[in-house]
Computed example of a mutant assay.
Amino acid sequence: MNYRHAFHAGNFADVLKHAVLARILAYLGRKDAGYRVIDSHAGIGLYDLAADEALRTGEWRGGVGRVRAARPSPALGDWLAPWLSALRAVNGGDDLLVYPGSPAIATALGRLQDRYHFNELHPQDAATLTALYAGDRRVRVGSEDGYVTVRAQLPPRERRGLVIVDPPFEEAGEFDRLTRAVHDARKRFATGCLMIWYPIKDVAAVDAFLAGAAGAGYPRLIAIEQWVRQPGGDGPLAGAGVLVANPPFTLADETEAILPELTRLLAEDDGAGGRVLRLAEDG
């Protein structure tokens, strides 16, 4: 439990992950009926960009900092709009003082009828998250193993919603646990949307994970990946992806259209790239 996302909040991987998350939530919000968001590894919710952790690495400057300073095309601007709306909401305007994690993005874009279960195993972070949402009756905070949460909280009472699994990848075997989580979610909440974040370090391990996830039998399954330099070797994280089961029907096409521009914006060298993989499609 040593991983602390405060050192990495707002980096390039967060941009992709949270922009995709915001688009999924915007899609869910098109219907009046409430939905539930279950976040298995939730963190603390909000990250102070003036805190020592953020200042020590400065990773946010190469992620959200670049996006905020850019003038994107209309297509990329539209794709980023829900995420940027959440940024403004938690900061109370255009100044970038704090960076929202998945819980803060979800609640910023949510409505009175929506419900949230945020889980965080790290005791100190769980306490911080609990304090953040002490006055929000829509939110429940748990502090168990995140993979137990995926099994225990499904299916949600609302029968619609999103499960987020974003583990720290501190221990060996994380991809195996993620594969089991995909299969568990499919059994318990077959019609729900599932979003899983993963790092791209060992490409063979990523390919094996995606193949195992495809075996769960979701009718629609996509993976969105981006790397700011060629993955592999030592050093800081070079690439990351999100696996989305039961994605909004437009998500793959619209992301594929803007991914080259987003990749150029976040690239660190000529080895940067990205792709959208359609692992399973209806029909």
Rank of each mutant, 00 (worst) to 15 (best):
L251D: 07
L265M: 11
R188H: 02
F169L: 01
V203H: 14
D39K: 13
G34A: 07
D95W: 01
L129Q: 09
H41K: 15
I200V: 15
H117S: 01
D253C: 11
V20A: 05
R188M: 01
A213H: 08
D14Q: 13
L243S: 05
E254D: 14
Q230I: 03
E171F: 00
A9C: 13
W79N: 06
A50E: 02
P82N: 00
H5I: 10
V150G: 15
R151V: 08
S102Y: 14
M1Q: 05
A213K: 06
A181H: 02
R30N: 14
L210C: 03
G283R: 15
L28P: 06
D234F: 14
N11E: 08
A205Y: 05
E261M: 14
V15P: 14
F175P: 03
V139I: 01
I196Q: 14
A240R: 11
G235F: 03
G10T: 12
Q230H: 07
Y218C: 05
A13P: 07
G233E: 13
E268G: 04
A22M: 00
N11P: 10
L162R: 11
D125H: 10
W83Q: 09
E171R: 08
P248M: 01
A70M: 07
P236T: 06
L76T: 05
R264M: 06
E120Y: 04
A205Q: 05
D94A: 14
A9S: 11
E171H: 03
A104F: 06
G101A: 05
T130G: 15
R220L: 12
L221W: 07
G173A: 03
L265C: 02
Y47C: 06
V242F: 11
T263N: 07
Y27K: 09
V141A: 05
L210K: 08
G10K: 12
G161M: 00
G101T: 07
Q124L: 15
A185T: 00
E171V: 08
H5T: 15
A70F: 11
P236D: 07
A51Y: 07
D270M: 09
D32T: 10
R111H: 01
R140C: 13
G93Y: 08
R66Q: 12
I222Y: 13
D114N: 07
D270Y: 11
A252L: 00
G135D: 10
F118T: 04
K31W: 14
V150H: 14
Y35L: 02
D176C: 04
P248Q: 02
K187C: 01
R23A: 01
K201L: 10
L178P: 09
R278D: 15
M1F: 00
A19H: 05
Q153L: 14
P82F: 03
R61D: 00
G110R: 04
T130V: 09
D114Q: 01
V139A: 00
Y218F: 12
N119Q: 06
N2W: 06
R61F: 02
A81N: 00
I105K: 02
V276K: 15
G232N: 06
I200D: 10
D202H: 00
D39T: 13
L221D: 03
I24P: 03
A6C: 08
K17Q: 04
R137E: 08
